[in-house]
Amino acid sequence: MMWAVWLIVIFVVLQLVLLVYLLLMKSRALKYEKALQHHYEQVLPQMVSYASGEKQHLPEFPSGHHLKTAIIEKVLDRLATITENTGEQARLQQFAEQELLPVYKKRLRKGNWAERMNTLYFIEDLQLSQMADAVDAHINRLRPGTEEHRQAVRTLATLGHTGAVDELLREEVSGTVFRKEILRRLPEEELRHLVNRLDADNHPELYQALLVHVGERGLLEFLPDVERALSHSNMEVRLKAMKSIGAYQYMNQPELIHPFFHSEHWEERMFACKTAAVLSLENRREELLELLADREWWVRYAAAEALQSFSDGEILLEYARHNHEDRFARDMAARTLTAKAEGER
């Protein structure tokens, strides 16, 4: 029966070790959180005075390296959300770079995964542009497509580093949402840089995302590129260009939309209707009334919506409801008018 005794002893020791470890860990964590909160509350008002120039000296931080960094991060994170004055922001930025740069460089090289990720988040939030080269170097150590790689590219894009464009052009970088996240972060000059380097045929998805993005951001500098894309051989590109124009709510040459009312592809006819609505192309009534009888439901729907958006839309739809020669067009006009009256969800 000795084996049973041994088994029980091993089991009890295991459980005890686990319990002691748990208690020690909890006690340390609670102490640390208490100290962090205590120092944070003390340091925050002093840092506000420092940022405003009211005080020239920095507050005193505790000596523990890890705790000090955590307090600085917490304080700066808080101040970043409430500081609007440019001068104050500059002082905080300088302080952040002075205190955090050496720590962050070390963490990117030697920290564990969670530490590296948190560091990348902070570099991005605090816009530590002096860390850009270090992040760029860090990216080269990462496998494309991993969570850390994606965050590193996001951070680099926020810092406006060309390396982000290089990463975006890599084949392994995929996912529409991710591409758009990077595009949203890139400054205009880097977007121009990207447009110049981008081959629409080699990177069709990125090109399409870029077209939509510049429209969403209302960057008029890129409008000629978008209008040029309307004559691209790939239908998806033409559609995205129309979507972009819809977001711009403006275009230099509205006549470029006209051929799409007669396109053989229903998607293009539908987008032409949507664009007509956004740009208030009221001189395209005839085409829209014609498309009210389109064989595709979505085109008829978009045509009716476009007509409805015009100043005399209700009169036009009322007319179509009773007099259009096509039964489906009459139905769609009636449906649009009724839906509006009932406040359809």
Partner: peptide, 10 residues
């Protein structure tokens, strides 16, 4: 273990 300490909101 890997995600221990990771900022969950970011």
């Amino acid at each position: 273990r890997r995600e221990h300490g990771l900022d969950r909101d970011e």
